[in-house]
Design a binder for these strands. Sequence first.
RNA 1: AGGCGCGUAGCUCAGUGGGAGAGCGCUUCCUUGACACGGAAGAGGUCAGGGGUUCGAUACCCCUCGUGCCUACCA
Length: 880
Amino acid sequence: MLEKRYEPKDIEKKWYDFWIENEYFRAEGKSDKPPYCIVIPPPNVTGSLHIGHALDITLQDIMIRWKRMSGSNTLWLPGTDHAGIATQNVVEKDLQKQGTDRHALGREKFIEKVWEWKKLYGGTIINQLKSMGASCDWSRERFTLDEGLSKAVREVFVRLYEEGLIYRGEYLINWCPRCHTALSDLEVEHEEKQGKLYYIKYNFADQDGHITVATTRPETYLGDTAVAVNPEDERYKNLIGKMVRLPIINRDIPIISDEFVDASFGTGAVKVTPAHDPNDFDMGKRHNLPFINLLTGDGKMTEEAGPYKGQDRFECRKNVLKDLEGMGHLEKVTDHAMAIGHCYRCKTIVEPYLSNQWFVKIKPLAEEAMKAVKEGQVKIIPTGWENSYFDWMENIKDWCISRQIWWGHRIPVWYCKECAEVIVSRETPAGCKCGSKELVQDEDVLDTWFSSALWPFSTLGWPEDTDDLKTFYPTSVLITGFDILFFWVARMMMMGLKFMKEEPFRHVYIHALIRDAEGQKMSKSKGNVVDPLKMTELYGTDAFRFTLAAYAAQGRDIKFSEQRVEGYRHFLNKIWNVARFISMNVTEGEAASLSIKVKSLSLADRWILSRLSVVCADINKSLEEYRFNDASSYLYQFIWHELCDWYVELIKPELYGENADSKKAAISTLVHVYEVSLALLHPFMPFITEEIWQQLPCKKNDDSLCIREYPSAAEGIEDKEAEEKLNIVMDAVTAIRNIRGELNLSPSLELQALIKASNNAEATLNENITYIAKLAKAKDIKIGSDIQAPKHAATAIKPAFEIFVPLEGLFDFDAEISRLNKEMSKVEEDIQFVDRKLRNEAFISKAPQAVVEENKNKYNEYMEKLKSIQGNIDKLNQWR
RNA sequence: AGGCGCGUAGCUCAGUGGGAGAGCGCUUCCUUGACACGGAAGAGGUCAGGGGUUCGAUACCCCUCGUGCCUACCA
């Protein structure tokens, strides 16, 4: 006998351990079964589970468990990402607390420290994934800095270099002065902000007068090497070639002309700072201007800044403005909206910074990646994201992959101290071809996303030709949020196609972002995060998972509300109680012999089996299409409203009755339908279903629900006739309940029911009179085509029959007449609506014949109903 | 600045070219032998506004308003 309430806590761990012990999640490297594979989006090793992970994990686990049960050789490959900058930041913070830093430690020691840290805390997120029920194959867990994955990284780097797709050069990149490293364009977050536009006067060097330039970053004037104007700009045409003198530092620079300049913006004259602005960089190249670097790596001014040397960049700005103003060089200041770039890891304002970096020449890779989606090898779901994908790929720029940090894959490039030879190699080289042994490795490491880009094949063993790789590549689907579509998905596409010659996954399912109940993005700083671990603690993992699945409609963000989790906890309680109901009605001895015997099935049995068949098909189809919300809604609807509200109630007379055969049929059907329901539910709520299933008194072919075959429509028996018939019965029950409710009659009061039925309905109702008696709490039910309405009776009119409920003594003429009047005005509206259509000639001639027919039928039906109601009202008025 | 999405019951959201659906909340009644985390019966919506296409539009097209996001080198 089950406990009165479902208590998730102990049960969850018990079953997870059981699954692991029995290796149910273990994939086969070689198998006759069809392969199904998902690689997990590897969470940062520093991370802890947030609600976005929870959604991600839940959806993946649903797909994986569903496919596993459906007979696939299923691999869900888990792992973590070394998260270069983020992890380094965390460990550096630790060091800071101890009053030291990484430079004091030295590179080698520091990296040791990070590994130590990883050993201590890196398992946190993995354990949290397990607590969500994730059915990953943990024997294949990977880490992006593993030996194998590092080998893949080197292989890819060297091959791209050899093909000329990786190069090194001095360019303007995004620099984070706090993290002390270059960032790719993607790692810079732009935020629209109200800023200022400063107008600065530059005097001519050899004549009176000045030209005014506008800038948002006045301190960069120190690095100006020209002023540019548009060649067509009449105002400045005659000034081209003249020199202006920079205030304070008194450097003379030329006025040049360049098409790039927009004459309508600001003053139409642009200061050109080639070392600190991307556009100016291009102009500098075009006009051969000097590049003056004003900044050090940590955002302080260099010697080039003259009197401002050593000042912080923002302090310098203040001082420059003060000085310019003092000397009368600041003409005016206006408000100006602009988007400033911030480091995505630490939110510091980034600087365009001139330095030597490694880049991937990306266009050729992007073209293949676009083609794969255009030609349909890869399907992005929902398709709306394809636009963003193409848009980004088309405008892509070379990818800066070197980072000036220590934690990560060190760039496999060595420089000879003797002859300046550059050696790019898979293996650490012993010496230079010039004979020197004096080699130094490049100091930089690779962008973390470089190794993540290889994840779908590096984790399967590439560059070795492993069984896993042969079996599981391309993987089946990638499930992730849109926030890393470019960071990760796009790059996996490029690398997968490049090195495997095949797309990394057949489908990409992009799910929503979870926001708080007000629609705000969740963030630690806003303090509006929903902690998934708290949810699982409060409501159980299953209820939480089901909530996430129910929320996961395509193409819309999720506004998360805790109330909804509570609602689904009630659903679990309902499921739990059906199990209790079964255990109370099935004795141990009976259990083993249960089977569905078609010939002794009652109408209710046939009906629920038919419904089961339909819902099995619906759920499989929904999952096929990644319609998680539909699947969960089908489950909820079927189990609660059909199985519990109707079927269980319908069979109670049989369970408590004397007829052994029909009792047996009812119990068999109930247990069967419930067992199948548990299987249907299992991918969504693995723990409670396993717990109940293990205790369910019926024959099972498997040791765990998680490997039971996933139900198909064949587990039910489709039977439209039974559905139609039972609908008539349900109609009758509802009609009587409706009278009871609306006339405020006590639920305990037994009502008499007289049913005037058409021939079809008469037989059906007669055969199922006990159902009606029980569910509507009715007695002395009489059914016939010649039933007459008694004097003091409430009436209900349905298409197939009319019901009269005699209410001697309790009868209230006014109440009943007003009920009927309400009903009548509804029907009158209906008639009007259909009539308008039928009188429209265009409708008759142009609408499909079936639609016209349908409306005609409706019209007749409504007219019948109207006649009946009117008749009843007339009688009541006569009698009263 | 461009692009994308959203606006449907009090709240959170499904949905569809042929009379508007769910969950929660609300109202009334009910401790009936699985379940009060329950049962039964209800109330509640010009499907943002305006125009167009159509026999027919909440759905398709255009505009407006509101709202959210992504991309972008306007100094």
